[in-house]
Design a protein around this nucleic acid. Structure first.
Lengths: 212, 212
DNA sequence: GTAGCAAGCAAGTACCTGCTTGCACGCATC
DNA sequence: GATGCGTGCAAGCAGGTACTTGCTTGCTAC
């Protein structure tokens, strides 16, 4: 393994666990099984090293994509949500550390925020396609619904370990359950005749939306 | 202002901004306008001080309650969600700091997790009541739906500042939009449902025989 | 008054932090 | 063999860290 990568992965690991201040150069060097001086010779400073480590980690976020043209929304969204959640759960510590450092070290945050942004764009495009093909109610605020779905995955990934009582359903089925409920929410209202999309999508909201 | 409270509030503030390691006793003392030694004389150690500060802050979380008996779910949930979100947004930095420290300092996490737990219990009870009175579909997984709603508020409060592009709708209307979409999701599927309540009624009880 | 107590103040201890310096060793290339 | 080059190692610097000690000051109660 290249010494550079060894250091970067060690830095990401230590930073995840201890945050920026706790990620001492001595600790990173020890974890990478490398002399501390090598860190400075290779990356210049602790800040540059950790920034680079986070950027690499964020760039490696290459998970399941949503298709350009929705075929089976329940299956596709379930898989996407599950992959997304698994990825966030795995990188939970790093994400939280970045969030905690966001005000003190804005540069770090930029490096990290990219992943979420990309996922959000992808979901947004998918939902737009869903709506334009009549599989999503035009009365549902698209961006609100989308950010809700993102938040759901985010909340599960962050909170499952911390507040287990709030997430009683097992990891394996959570994404499916979330997706099903989400699809109920955005499904077009059946006007008398229940045009049930795939069995689960007959949600009817009696809430009048005349208030824009 | 009591010197004790002055120190506690300063500690919470500094801890929010800089995390545990960054919250030096010197900085806290300076922020509280108190001699550093007084910190140790009053609380014994930095750890004890910060733990106490977090506990106090979490205990002060006394926001809007959900009624025992749902009357107007859309209004009640909107208000509750808005209050909850505002509270989390205000305490965002502290929450994130606690989350980042959860593995290194589990004691701190326990002090902080209480607030979320209480809110969750309250929502769960409300949803149960909603379901038992026929205003929530029995096919919807109650805990999944509840944790979704919690996650939505959490995600908005945490992400709005960090990834603005994901939360384009203004703070004032976000809670209403979330609630409306959520209610669409959990509303009983109409078998040709009737709505007989006043105009803005959210989820309508079909418990009365499905006439019409 | 004076005794007790809470708080401030200055200094110090032992350790940790990022980062630097100087030097030695192994290894590939010419 | 000579020349770099990348790396390891030991030591150190200047500053920061939690926490302690010994002392002074001001306020309140008897």
């Amino acid at each position: 393994m290249e010494i550079r990568e060894k250091i970067l992965s060690a830095a990401a690991r230590v930073y995840s666990q201890h945050g920026f201040r706790g990620a001492t150069t001595r600790l990173i060097a020890q974890e990478a099984d490398v002399n501390e001086v090598t860190l400075f010779r290779t990356f210049g400073s602790k800040e540059a090293l950790i920034e680079e480590a986070i950027r690499c980690h964020a760039a490696s976020a290459d998970f399941a994509r949503l298709p350009d043209e929705p075929q089976d929304p329940e299956r596709e969204l379930t898989e996407w949500c599950a992959a997304h959640m698994a990825h966030m759960r795995e990188g939970r510590a790093l994400i939280v550390s970045c969030m905690a450092d966001v005000e003190e070290r804005p540069d770090i945050a930029c490096s990290a925020g990219g992943g979420a942004g990309r996922a959000w764009q992808e979901l947004e495009r998918y939902l737009e396609r869903l709506r334009s093909t009549g599989r999503m109610d035009v009365d549902v605020h698209l961006k609100a619904a989308g950010s809700m779905f993102m938040s759901i995955a985010f909340g599960d990934a962050m909170g499952r370990e911390m507040i287990p009582s709030m997430f009683p359903q097992p990891v394996e089925t959570a994404a499916r359950e979330y997706t099903r409920i989400f699809l109920r929410a955005i499904a077009p209202r059946s006007n008398g005749a229940g045009r049930t999309q795939d069995g689960n999508a007959a949600a009817v909201s009696p809430s009048t939306d005349d208030r824009s």
